[in-house]
Amino acid sequence: MHVTINLDYTLFIQLGLFLIFMFIMKKIYFQPYLEAFEERESTVKKLLQEAETNNQQAQEILKEVDAILSKVKEESKKILEQSSRETNQMVAEIIRKAQEEAEKEIEEAKKDIDRIVEIETKTLDISIEKIAEKIVDKLTLKEKAA
């Protein structure tokens, strides 16, 4: 008994054609798409890294801005306090000067009143003396006549 095996080469031919087809498809179709996907993936990774870097820089800038704002607030508070103190000092100085001027004017008015009273007193004394002389003259005339 002798067994003969008939080999069917069509299986090998189909396998070879399939491999050739896969090679051609890989070169023409799959490889450009894979390269495009890889390029897109690397671009997305780069953009994500840049976004993360930009986010970190933005956070650092925000911290710096917050620090600057707090310094500016402190400085403005100091300036406001200083200007308030200076304003209060100026107001106190103006009030003091006004009081001094008022006191000077009151003193001058008192002196003027004292001078006027003195003048009026002298005038009144002179008038009283004249009246007294007239009374004495009248009394002496009456005594002479009597």
Rank of each mutant, 00 (worst) to 15 (best):
A98W: 05
A98P: 00
A98N: 04
A98M: 04
A98Y: 04
Q99M: 10
Q99Y: 07
Q99C: 04
E100N: 02
E100F: 06
E101M: 11
A102P: 00
A102R: 00
E103N: 05
K104W: 10
K104Q: 09
K104M: 09
K104N: 09
K104S: 10
E105G: 03
I106N: 08
E107T: 12
E107N: 13
E107W: 11
A109P: 01
A109Q: 04
A109G: 04
K110D: 04
K110V: 02
K110Y: 05
K111C: 03
K111F: 00
D112L: 07
D112M: 11
D112S: 14
I113A: 15
I113D: 08
I113F: 10
D114T: 09
R115D: 07
R115V: 03
I116Y: 13
I116S: 15
I116F: 09
V117I: 05
V117N: 12
V117S: 08
E118A: 07
I119L: 12
I119P: 03
E120Q: 06
E120R: 09
E120T: 02
E120F: 00
T121I: 04
T121R: 08
T121A: 10
L124S: 03
D125L: 05
D125G: 04
D125P: 02
I126S: 10
I126E: 13
S127T: 13
S127E: 13
S127F: 02
S127K: 08
I128A: 06
I128H: 08
E129C: 00
E129A: 03
E129W: 04
K130M: 00
K130L: 01
I131F: 11
I131R: 05
I131M: 03
I131C: 00
I131V: 06
I131K: 06
I131H: 10
A132P: 00
A132W: 10
E133A: 05
E133M: 01
E133R: 04
E133N: 03
K134L: 01
K134M: 01
K134D: 08
I135F: 06
I135E: 04
I135Y: 03
I135V: 07
I135N: 02
V136C: 14
V136F: 13
V136T: 15
D137N: 13
D137H: 13
K138M: 12
K138V: 11
K138Q: 14
K138T: 13
L139W: 02
L139A: 14
L139T: 11
L139K: 06
T140P: 06
T140L: 13
T140Q: 14
T140M: 12
L141C: 10
L141S: 15
L141F: 13
L141E: 15
L141G: 14
K142A: 15
K142Y: 13
K142M: 12
E143M: 07
E143A: 11
K144Y: 12
A145Q: 12
A145V: 08
A145D: 14
A145N: 12
